[in-house]
Simulated assay, not measured.
Amino acid sequence: MLPLSSPPQSICILRLSALGDVCNLVPSVRAIQKHWPRTSITWILGQAEYTLLEGLSGVELIPYDKKTGLAGMWRLRQQLKGRQFDVLLHMQQAIRASLLAKLAISAPIWLGYDSARAKDKQDWFCNHHLPPHPKAHVLESFLDFAYALGVPETPLCWDIPINEAAEREAFSWQPQTTEYVLISPCSTQRTRNFRNWSASGYAQVIEYLYHKYGLVTVLTGGRTVQETEYAQSIRHAVSTPLINAVGQTSLKALLALIRDARLVIAPDSGPVHMATAMQTPVVGLYATTNPQRAAPYLAQPWVVNKYPHAVQTYLNTQVEAVTWGQRVRHPQAMNLIQVEDVIARLDALIQHTA
């Protein structure tokens, strides 16, 4: 517990990325707001993340584009010049973020992760640290910041706003005569970041959902070449109705599409956490990351979890022997997921939510 003698007047949060992570962080913000409604909250976050959360009630959102380098850091310093926060919640575990904070953010209390969870020497920059929390989910790690301030546990709340323009945009992609499933087949492209399941697997699942449940699929994703090609491969492999919105929606419209979907299917990526924020049922596909740490928080029963199998197959050990955040960086790991595995989770989820 931090030595706060009274509610802080101002809190600065530094968490730049990623889309899923900022969704997991919002309940911590809401918990602080509920406990200290008069405390002002400023959140420095990435450009895409800002677009997703824009309009978040009671929060000053300041976008920062990490691609701008030192020039962007200096602009943020000028933007915050003369401002003193009571507390900095340093939630971004990267040396670049720590340097940004040192350059631009003034606060007497810097709260960061404990040494077991800190990366890139983040704990060196902070004068207060979270108590240990072994094997915490990402969302729980963010809540730990609120609890360290003295905020009590409270029911999870997101309440991420969607504007009218995004509502209209989402409506234009929705089938008007039937319920739909939203599939976001790709995760963000990163070096040795193997999280994507096969296009043929998705195609078989799409056919199954249409023939058994009458559910049309809406494909979503970004504008990268990889995502466009994935969508084309899936489109060519199915004969059932399919709406391809890949690369053609804003993040707010995607949020609305997720909210209104019967269910969502995606790998370890932003949309599974956006689904949780919108209280939409979601089946997450996991093999290269540990779902106990990173799966959609309220949907653990519906996760297709091949992570233990991947650890055994490609790391030659048992899941109990690897560190909590260990990734399986093998291009074939997601192929451990079988179509039958996904269908089994979908059937269970649909029956549970009928």
Rank of each mutant, 00 (worst) to 15 (best):
L4E: 14
E340L: 04
R195K: 15
A18P: 03
T177V: 12
L251I: 00
W124E: 03
N127Q: 08
C126L: 06
A107S: 15
I243P: 08
L100N: 04
I44F: 10
L61R: 13
Y230L: 01
E169N: 08
A310N: 12
A275P: 09
D86C: 07
L88N: 13
R262P: 11
H137D: 03
D159I: 03
A97L: 05
Q84N: 05
P155M: 01
W302P: 14
L149C: 11
K67R: 13
V29A: 06
Q338L: 14
V311L: 11
N335A: 10
A166E: 14
L88C: 11
I44N: 10
L143V: 02
L61D: 13
K135Y: 07
Q79D: 09
K67H: 13
A101M: 11
R83S: 06
A261W: 06
L149P: 12
Y147T: 04
L111C: 05
K66V: 07
N305S: 05
I265T: 00
A18M: 03
G72Q: 10
T289E: 13
L100T: 05
T188L: 02
C186I: 00
Y230S: 00
I183P: 10
R293L: 03
A118E: 02
P267F: 03
P131S: 11
N163H: 15
T228E: 02
Q318Y: 01
I13K: 01
L76W: 15
L76F: 14
S28Y: 05
Q33P: 00
P37H: 04
R262I: 03
N305T: 04
Y50E: 05
T224K: 06
Y64D: 14
I11M: 08
H90W: 14
K306P: 13
E167G: 04
D268T: 02
S106D: 08
V138E: 15
I13G: 00
C186M: 04
L70G: 11
Q33S: 01
A118I: 00
E179W: 02
S115W: 07
H352M: 12
S269C: 07
R293S: 03
M334N: 03
A101T: 12
Q84T: 04
Q189S: 09
R190V: 00
P155Q: 04
R329Y: 01
A116L: 09
L257A: 08
G20F: 10
V342W: 04
N24L: 08
V205R: 10
P134E: 10
Q33G: 01
R117K: 08
